[in-house]
Amino acid sequence: MDLHASWNFPTAITVGEGCLDQLGERCKVLNMTKVLLITDPGLSGLSMVKEAIAYCIEAGLEADVFADIQGNPTGNNVRDGALFLNAGGFDGVVAFGGGSSLDAAKAIAMIAKQAISLWTAEDIGSNWTLVDESLMLPVVAVPTTAGTGSEVGRASVITDTDGPHHIKRIIFHPNMLPAHVLLDPILTLSLPPHITAATGLDALSHNLEAYCAPFYHPMAEGIAIEGIRLVKDFLPRAVTNGEDIEARTQMLVASTMGATSFQRGLGGMHAIAHSLGALYNKHHGLLNAILMPYVLMRNRSVIEERITRLSRYLELDDASFDGFLSWVLTLREQLNIPHTLAEIGINLDDAVLIGKMSAKDAASAGNPIILTDAEYSLLFSDAVKGQLK
């Protein structure tokens, strides 16, 4: 099968080996003349970033790099990026890297020219209407991991470090959706197995929580089901052989499908993962991967029939809830994902605080069962202790 394509859902997407060479032209189509490529320190010195800048210059554009973005991007990262963008007179953004870089870049492109603060655009009520959309800069997104799907998202998750407790806030505007996405599997070939696994299971968590969310969105539900199948078929291959172009391509697509489908909602995995990421600065995909079976078990009474239908589509030998849970546990073990949060250095000291933060997190609204502070604390405790009950 030829894995090169151009799609227009939910935005313009070009997928295929080597498609990065279209970057300069895609920026020109959006009337960019001076491009700021936003990425993280780990990528900034690599050849792929230099290549991306070269494609922009070849297209007649001026281009520079801003790379002061940490693993869980903060409000300070966004503010620093906005200052850099304005000082340099840039009129367009290339979001380049993993989910953290993409989220930060989208937020910078949205807020840099605004008179309001970043937190004013938090996804609460109609806050997004306070943003002057005419001042937002166009974005071309180039993901280098297959996990968050931020390249097709209308929001960014940014950590607010200004208060006594770090909190992840969701910044939203419909026009934060990048105008064009380039899915080039070559950019993911150098990802080590443990990052491939964690980001891939993040893509699974997006598709799975979207599928289980209680809201009406049949289109998103259908996308989620196929996204889960792609993870099942291709994530083990991508981890085992990082040079497998087909597996890398399909995982990039599964990632975009996850972020497209979670328009339907997320859930408890993300509510707790957002809280833990803010407090402990742990890898978001790894947190979701560890939390997955515990959240599935907590929601079993509501989602069992739905998961059974999914199991039949995936052609599992045991097409039941137990069969699906067994597949998840086996996949995690195969990919060397820890079974407990304790194994990555998280203990029960902040259980009460995490319960409160998780219950307030926007993702909690999509959990099949609405959980209280105390119930989130218990669920977190189960994941620390490894009590799958």
Rank of each mutant, 00 (worst) to 15 (best):
E209H: 15
E209A: 05
E209T: 10
E209Y: 12
A210H: 07
Y211A: 08
Y211G: 04
Y211C: 03
C212V: 10
A213K: 03
A213I: 02
A213Q: 05
P214F: 02
P214D: 15
P214Y: 10
P214R: 06
P214I: 11
F215H: 15
F215C: 08
F215D: 11
F215G: 13
F215T: 15
Y216S: 15
Y216L: 14
Y216W: 15
Y216G: 09
Y216C: 14
Y216A: 12
H217Y: 13
H217E: 14
H217D: 14
H217I: 09
P218L: 13
P218D: 10
P218A: 12
M219H: 07
M219Q: 07
A220G: 14
A220L: 00
A220R: 00
E221C: 02
E221Q: 14
E221M: 09
E221D: 13
E221H: 05
G222W: 05
G222C: 07
G222D: 05
I223Y: 01
A224V: 02
A224W: 00
A224P: 02
A224M: 03
A224D: 00
A224T: 06
I225N: 05
I225R: 01
I225T: 04
I225E: 06
E226L: 01
E226Y: 08
E226W: 03
E226F: 03
E226G: 06
G227V: 01
I228V: 11
I228N: 02
I228C: 02
I228W: 03
I228Y: 02
R229C: 01
R229L: 05
L230K: 04
L230N: 08
L230G: 00
L230Q: 10
V231R: 02
V231E: 01
V231Q: 03
V231D: 06
V231I: 10
V231G: 05
K232G: 00
D233Y: 06
D233W: 03
D233N: 14
D233F: 04
D233R: 13
D233V: 10
F234D: 01
F234K: 06
F234H: 10
F234C: 04
L235K: 04
L235N: 03
L235F: 04
L235I: 10
L235C: 12
P236R: 06
P236L: 11
P236A: 05
P236Y: 09
R237L: 15
R237P: 08
R237W: 07
A238N: 08
A238T: 03
A238I: 04
A238M: 04
V239K: 01
V239I: 08
T240Y: 09
T240W: 06
T240C: 08
T240N: 12
N241F: 07
N241L: 07
N241A: 09
N241W: 04
N241I: 09
N241D: 15
G242Y: 09
G242T: 12
E243G: 06
E243A: 13
E243N: 14
D244W: 07
D244I: 07
D244E: 13
I245G: 01
I245Y: 02
I245M: 10
I245E: 05
I245T: 12
I245C: 05
I245A: 04
E246F: 10
E246T: 15
E246I: 15
A247G: 14
A247V: 09
A247W: 09
R248L: 14
R248V: 15
R248K: 15
R248H: 12
R248Y: 11
